[in-house]
Design a protein around this nucleic acid. Structure first.
Lengths: 129, 129
DNA sequence: CAGGATCCCACTGGATACTG
DNA sequence: CAGTATCCAGTGGGATCCTG
């Protein structure tokens, strides 16, 4: 990671499990990555997918993801502004993690009384947040 | 989850990605689960594997994992006390997630200047934290 | 051995208002 | 549209000491 903005990495050296979760912690990162798995999105498009995330937090999380090299930020010099976020190679390489998270959630979320729509689209990023 | 001790679950209903990460957030849970994947461990055995986790936090995280149904706590009525922690069925079902996290970390941790031992034992839980 | 209790502070993150 | 700025509450989590 470029700047160690988040100090959550004090595990013993060489702990790859911590390394990985350290990048997708922070309440929104995993879902953001998940949605970007479906393709490039603009700022407000992400907001719409992750409604309960405030603009401030969204910016924050996107910046950390960018600093960690997981996503790419492309700014179009125009008015009104247009900024596109997409997964980098490294971000794409996290797909297995994201999919296993999704798969587990799909299989087990019902146990917690949380009804799951089982909407087929849910199996693809871009579905409900 | 039994008691919603941790309030981190305010995503839109049906978000299975959030559901899954919500259970393994909290700085230590993923590593604890990882180590338990290798088999039953006692309190201080876990402490040794996750040195930088204080007893208080370890208790805390273990309790949450237990409340979430991911681990099982077996207390032996004896002196000195003996408590064993092991993965429940549900906890075991998270193995794919944990393994994908580990795999990703192994493949990419080097990019961050964190040297990786590439110790073969690292591929199995029970190795270095 | 396996924790519980208490103190305390840093950071997380929400609400709201403003801007290029 | 895509953020920034500021204020502020809640809590995550460390340090330390105590106990059945």
């Amino acid at each position: 990671m470029a700047k160690v903005r988040h100090s959550r990495f004090d595990c013993t050296p060489g702990c790859s499990v911590e390394a990985a979760i350290g990048l997708i912690d922070g309440k929104w990162k995993a879902i953001i990555l998940w949605h970007l798995l479906a393709g490039t999105l603009r700022f407000n498009e992400i907001r719409r997918q992750v409604q309960s995330c405030t603009p401030r937090m969204l910016t924050n999380q996107l910046r950390e993801l960018e600093d960690d090299g997981l996503i790419t930020r492309k700014v179009y010099a125009q008015v009104p502004p247009k900024v596109e976020y997409s997964l980098s190679e490294l971000g794409l390489s996290m797909a297995p993690i994201l999919r296993s998270l999704k798969a587990w959630g799909d299989a087990n979320i019902g146990l917690y009384g949380k009804p799951l729509g089982h909407d087929p689209r849910d199996l693809q990023p871009g579905g409900s947040a």
